[in-house]
């Protein structure tokens, strides 16, 4: 799969270092965060500062807590210790703050989670209308704009069940974008897709990165990491084991667990 995205890299000739990363503007700040499921310590002492405009890829074996980590960032899961500050708002039990954060943070799921009873257009306009109070016509115009960006405007009046997996995932990305988020979280967005559909989704993600979106992606697409990320984080046993820029991360992994992981996934 890595060669699919690297080939598109050549066509597009993106240079990751050209994409702007702010030095001062912190998007997400995770400080000494721990999380338990019952007695099971899933996330241990996580410290992570994400600057505005960063593209971070989180990798790691399954069960390492990477999905849980990004699900904590919009409080789909709650943490028990430490702090998570998103766009300057600390996540606590306060529902008002949680809603505030979720409005600014988009999330794309492994299984798309489109609303099957609504058309594509209704999927896209639901949140803008009911959360932001956007007038319907305006919300629909925005929705069509993003559907064009993900290259499926002609599907607007179909239902999710009528679309292929790749199309559904692109709709899901467009649905998040309609809320004009400042940060996008991707939870294994290509894992549930047939191989031939991975490329179309990755292309959308690459173009988002080019626009300077702050992104945190949990993914196994190492080609994507190499090409788009400015930082790769490796997690195992609920903790961050190693982080580095992609070049050093792939060519010169330091920790033995990282080396083992990379040798397994890059054959």
């Amino acid at each position: 799969m890595s060669d699919i995205s690297s080939s598109s890299a050549e066509e597009r000739t993106i240079n990751a270092s050209q994409m702007k990363v702010s030095d001062t503007d912190v998007a997400i700040d995770v400080v000494g965060m721990h999380k338990w499921y019952g007695d099971f310590h899933v996330l241990r002492d996580i410290d992570l500062k994400v600057m505005r405009g960063e593209r971070i890829v989180v990798a790691g074996p399954s069960g390492s807590g990477k999905s849980t980590l990004i699900r904590c960032m919009n409080r789909l899961e709650e943490h028990q210790q430490g702090q998570i500050i998103v766009n300057g708002t600390e996540l606590t039990a306060d529902l008002k703050r949680i809603d505030e954060v979720r409005r600014e943070v988009g999330m794309v799921f492994q299984h798309f989670n489109l609303f099957p009873h609504l058309t594509i257009l209704q999927n896209l306009t639901l949140a803008p209308i009911w959360v932001r109070g956007t007038p319907q016509a305006e919300a629909e115009a925005t929705a069509m704009h993003y559907l064009e960006r993900v290259k499926i405007p002609e599907q607007a009046n179909k239902f999710p069940g009528q679309l292929s997996g790749g199309q559904q995932q692109r709709v899901a990305i467009a649905r998040s974008l309609c809320m004009q988020p400042k940060i996008m979280l991707f939870d294994e967005p290509t894992s549930a897709l047939d191989p031939e559909m991975v490329k179309e989704v990755l292309e959308v993600m690459i173009s988002l990165a080019e626009e300077g979106m702050t992104m945190i992606c949990v993914t196994h697409e190492m080609g994507f990491a190499r090409q788009v990320a400015n930082r790769v984080i490796f997690m195992d046993q609920g903790q961050i084991i190693e982080q580095n820029d992609p070049e050093n991360f792939f060519s010169n992994p330091q920790h033995e667990r990282t080396q083992l992981f990379l040798s397994q996934i890059l054959h």
Partner: peptide, 13 residues
């Protein structure tokens, strides 16, 4: 931001 963990965190109650 380059970082390598030296000491693993043991699970705590």
């Amino acid at each position: 931001f380059s970082f390598v963990r030296e000491q693993m965190v043991d699970p705590a109650p």
